[in-house]
């Protein structure tokens, strides 16, 4: 930080020889993924910012989100058994877009927001071999000539932002470079668990309608928090500096030449994958940076 209260640049450790180095910059943009960007901010402590840059109100690190998933639904589509090998390609998944709690007719008052379904249908490659009895040439002929079709389905839902879900610097644990690591405090709440019940009911209805055989029931519980690796939040946007870290252009309220342009800025995450939104927000922030720089505001 410099005397004007702006970031002077970035300190880093050279990977090959562990030398401590610095680069100077007029503008610092963090896009290290949600939790890493926040960790850098939390670790950027100085007399002026004793709790890290962007943390003057104690909001930094809070409102962590990660999509819920209810996984494991599926079975065999018995009517589609074949002896002809089909091409195996990637573009064969499907998505049933979110329909609950939208402008459409389907509402569920037990929870806010909603979820979508996704999965794939495909020929087994050789999974059927494990349940084909016997051995030898005859066994191989059966594996080759009787190819079952599998169908898989899961639900992914929105996680509400809660102050209680947060990351903070671990008082003891450090990373490989000696820099304090994060400790994550997170769990799914009542809204997510109520949503999971609806997910499970509808997954069952989909599997019934498809008349799936040799079924795998969807799991009883949501995935563990963090498994989806769609972590968002912890340096959220907002108009009010008391309740947010960044302004609407990803600029830190506390330090105007620091920007965070990854999932850390999310206020809510919807039920969809975050990457495209992150890209759009980044482009918008880049435009703003160029504009503000031209005006001499940074």
């Amino acid at each position: 930080m410099n005397d004007e209260g702006k970031a002077a640049g970035v300190a880093y450790i050279e990977r090959t020889n562990r030398a401590a180095r610095e680069v100077r910059a007029k503008v610092v943009v963090l896009a290290a993924s949600a939790l890493e960007s926040t960790r850098i901010l939390l670790n950027s402590r100085s007399p002026r910012f004793p709790n890290g840059v962007g943390n003057s109100r104690g909001v930094l690190g809070h409102y962590l989100m990660d999509h819920t998933t209810l996984e494991g639904g599926g079975g065999k589509m018995a009517a589609l058994k074949s002896s002809v090998r089909e091409p195996v390609g990637r573009p064969c998944g499907y998505i049933i877009p979110k329909y609950v709690n939208t402008a459409g007719p389907y509402r569920n008052k037990n929870f806010l927001r909603g979820y979508y379904f996704a999965g794939d249908g495909r020929q087994e490659l050789y999974g059927q071999a494990f349940s084909t009895p016997g051995f030898g040439r005859d066994f191989r002929r059966k594996v080759r000539e009787s190819i079952p079709y599998s169908f898989g389905v899961y639900a992914q839902g929105e996680c509400l932002p809660r102050f209680d879900n947060y990351v903070a610097l671990d008082p003891e644990k450090k990373d490989a470079w000696g820099i304090p690591a994060l400790h994550i405090h997170a769990s799914y709440g009542e809204n997510e668990h109520n949503m999971a019940k609806a997910m499970r009911d509808h997954l069952g209805e989909i599997m019934d309608a498809l008349k799936l055989e040799e079924r795998n029931s969807p799991r009883d519980e949501l995935n563990i928090f963090g498994k989806n690796i769609h972590e968002c939040g912890t340096a959220r946007m907002g108009k009010d500096p008391k309740t947010s870290v960044l302004n609407t252009y990803n600029q830190a309220h506390d330090v105007k030449n620091v920007f965070v342009t990854d999932g850390a800025c999310f206020v809510t995450q919807g039920c969809w994958e975050p990457t495209l939104t992150i890209m759009a927000i980044s482009v918008r922030a880049a435009d703003y940076i160029a504009d503000e720089h031209r005006k001499g505001n940074l």
């Binding site: 090998r85 091409p87 195996v88 490659l125 050789y126 494990f130 080759r144």
Partner: peptide
């Protein structure tokens, strides 16, 4: 099963053509 059906001989026998669509 794992050894054979992930080998060239096994994949050829299954008619697997790689990541085609």
């Amino acid at each position: 099963i794992h050894g054979f059906y992930t080998s060239r001989a096994g994949l050829d026998e299954l008619g697997y053509r790689g990541n085609a669509f």
